[in-house]
Nucleic acid binder design. Sequence first.
DNA 1: ACGGTGATGAGACTAAGTCCCATCACTTGT
DNA 2: ACAAGTGATGGGACTTAGTCTCATCACCGT
Lengths: 201, 201
Amino acid sequence: MSSRDQVPYTVLMARWEPNAAERLAHAALDLFAERGYENTTVIDIAQRAGLGKSTFFRHFQDKREVLFGGSAMDGLLTEAIAAAPATATPLEAVAHALDAAGREVFTPARREFIARRQAVIAANPELQEREALKNLALIASMTDALKRRSVPDLTARVAAELGALASTIAFERWSQTTTGADFSEIARQALDDVQASTALC
Amino acid sequence: MSSRDQVPYTVLMARWEPNAAERLAHAALDLFAERGYENTTVIDIAQRAGLGKSTFFRHFQDKREVLFGGSAMDGLLTEAIAAAPATATPLEAVAHALDAAGREVFTPARREFIARRQAVIAANPELQEREALKNLALIASMTDALKRRSVPDLTARVAAELGALASTIAFERWSQTTTGADFSEIARQALDDVQASTALC
DNA sequence: ACGGTGATGAGACTAAGTCCCATCACTTGT
DNA sequence: ACAAGTGATGGGACTTAGTCTCATCACCGT
């Protein structure tokens, strides 16, 4: 047994292990669910992940971001819209994007985790603000992606907005199902529902 | 001249004057425009208004809220939707609400002030988050107001969302005009444009 | 064994936001 | 006129978010 085995931090078995960001995100979600977002300190999160406060802020811009860092939804949606067949209408391209989201992000395996995350967000206005802004950014990205398909500005904006609404509705339905229902199918249905509703306005 | 004329704070001519909240809001907008939101301290704002930090937080929940406190848009929109003729379609009721906003809030006299405020918001993500959440709340309120008119849930939601989009677009157009164009008219046009675009999706 | 690189920790620092308590101006009742 | 009450305010102590700098540690190649 060399003397290195007794170096303090190595014994803790946390520093220097990989996936610091992921560990921090999990610790944060656990703590937020246990005691609430406001009763959880950044230092609490870092300690549970076996890290220090400095490291937390090296991985995340701020305390809210720890719940939003992972997804990379943006590129996924814009690429799916770009990859939609040239003959597709704007809303069909958006449907293509929601399909991709169902395949890559809103998978059955992640459903419970994502629902837990959403419950935490729903309980805290600060987190809802961050989510609202992220959603605006997604809509802007989808709008741009549609414009690159030569969709007129206003039409692109409306299609992106309706897509976002359909996505929100689909998410609500999906996160409540106990059956392992497929997000993509639910989203397609939601988009159809939304489109039908526009006619009744 | 009595000794009271020499009491320190009274000489400053700011404490105890009315409209503390309004004074704070104006001081804040001025400072944000001058040096930027992040380079302005709550203490700076309070000092320019001739008040203390405690008083600032007595009037506003937090630093962001000082830019969003006044409007009371919520009641205005919901009441206008409720007051729309019973024969009006959902989108017509929403148009009624945008009309009210043009009459009571987005008046020609306030155009410059509001545009200045919007420029400050556009320059800062923190403020955009707050604005995004306020917008979500407005959409929720309009949705509820429409439901109270016996509009089906989903239709209400879509109509509110389209109304919010039209409002955003109208606001963009209105705040750029140099002519004293009427917000209500611009909003009606924007709503027509949006509605026409839904058909092209 | 040596030095370089990248991730980390510790601590000082600023500002947001909360809380408590004393102070002040104004009002009311006597 | 005066005393007590009321409501708005100021000040300062306190906690936490977030920034920044510097030293330390593990790992990798030489």
